[in-house]
Design a binder for these strands. Structure first.
Lengths: 234, 234
DNA sequence: TCAAAAGTGTTCTTATTACACCCATGG
DNA sequence: CCATGGGTGTAATAAGAACACTTTTGA
């Protein structure tokens, strides 16, 4: 057994890529590290996993400590385990991505953070550790996922307009420099044909143009369609 | 720092889900464990990761020790980290799946294996650790992946018939009890329209029916199409 | 009355599905 | 000459892409 013991000298952490949407750009919540290593640098919020804590639980904990939110969309992406990725020893990290409504988020600086701030994903700059690579991986997963399942709604407030929804899809799916947009009529046709939007019979107020109708995502209908084996492609 | 040290008492392993195809069923390579825990039980081939070894490297090593194969299709799926998943301590494992041509494989019983054997994926029975869960996860990933990219060819010998290719797709994509099959004409049309198959102008020999034409996968053309930004959906 | 964004249909093209018979070979 | 699996085309339907003008509101 003593041979085996030499293996039990590693640690693991979770890192959360928390996406949000402010009506314009896709955002990611970053913290400024309050301790070495990489003190002062921007990083993904993460923490070492407690010895008696499941990976998923650790990811939920980190998210809750930082945002105060529970029951949020959270999914594992993959593990990152390069030998030299952490200066203090052998630490592999498991990346999670989650989607939150920015309006639900209230600043709750966690122990591991000097400060936390939303950054536009295309302009995060140079992050601590291998966090740029992790972010890139999570972005890819988000892009794939948002076309197969209606998770985009997790990022929007309860009431939203079709244009807001389209801008969200564009901010996720369209490469930064591309000037191409999704066709408005085709987008609406496709979204409405899923029957997942409930028309609230309300409109925007106080806008200097024709007010848009408000919709909400019909989660019950979604569960029902899934149960019937329906599969999406938005 | 001593506070941090309490975290460095964990280990991690890799577990490989190695898929193969024998012309009939989709297979997975399992080992019979030669040591405790779960001695004698069938399990996924895996090993603890050396302190100075990258995760991906560890997965390649396990695969090579078991099959003698290098340069094989291998991809990380995800990490599994339930607190009690390993009886000897806190060990999280990172699952990889790989695709090999069964004909290339020669038995090279690795240190960790009493014996290794191909099992039909639908009939693996009760595996050691959380390996049933891991296998299920990798199967899901394979099903998704095989429809988006032409990785199926990794499982076939260099020369194959269209019927063999179709049987492979069916064994991966069609749920066990479903009697449904893929339509032969539509399948051929779609596959041939990708232009990824090279007609070898050879036919099967010694079969008691009209001999089928042989094809090979045109890897160069594939790389070229990818470079041009082509995307698949088989 | 102007600016700004909302809303709305049709046509064309392409992909998907469904479907049944003759062919070449070995035994 | 029979059994076995190989090979082939067409028509109907559905999905996706391209495209431009009118409407409503606040300033």
């Amino acid at each position: 057994m003593s041979e085996v013991e030499s293996f039990f000298k590693s640690a693991f952490s979770v890192d959360n890529v928390i996406f949000g949407f402010d009506g314009g750009d896709l955002k990611v919540l970053l913290i400024q590290r309050g301790a070495a290593p990489y003190k002062g640098k921007w990083a993904l919020p993460g923490d070492l996993v407690y010895p008696n804590e499941d990976l998923d639980t650790a990811a939920e904990r980190v998210l809750e400590q930082l945002t105060g939110l529970r029951g949020v969309y959270l999914e594992q992406v993959k593990a990152f385990g390069a030998v030299d990725r952490h200066p203090l020893g052998r630490v592999i990290t498991v990346a999670y991505f989650s989607l939150i409504k920015i309006s639900d988020y209230t600043v709750t600086p966690a122990s591991f953070a000097q400060s936390a701030k939303w950054h536009t994903v295309t302009k995060v700059g140079d992050l601590a550790f291998d966090h740029n690579e992790i972010l890139e991986s999570c972005l890819k997963k988000l892009r794939r996922k948002v076309r197969m399942t209606p998770i985009g709604f997790e990022l929007l407030p309860p009431k939203f307009t079709l244009t807001e929804l389209q801008q969200l899809y564009e901010s996720i799916l369209i490469p930064p420099k591309s000037k191409k947009r999704i066709d408005k009529r085709n987008f609406r046709k496709k979204i409405l044909s899923t029957n997942l939007l409930h028309d609230l019979n309300e409109v925007q107020e106080g806008v200097a143009h024709r007010p848009a109708k408000l919709y909400r995502f019909d989660r019950n209908k979604y569960e029902q369609l899934i149960a019937e084996g329906y599969s999406f492609d938005i």
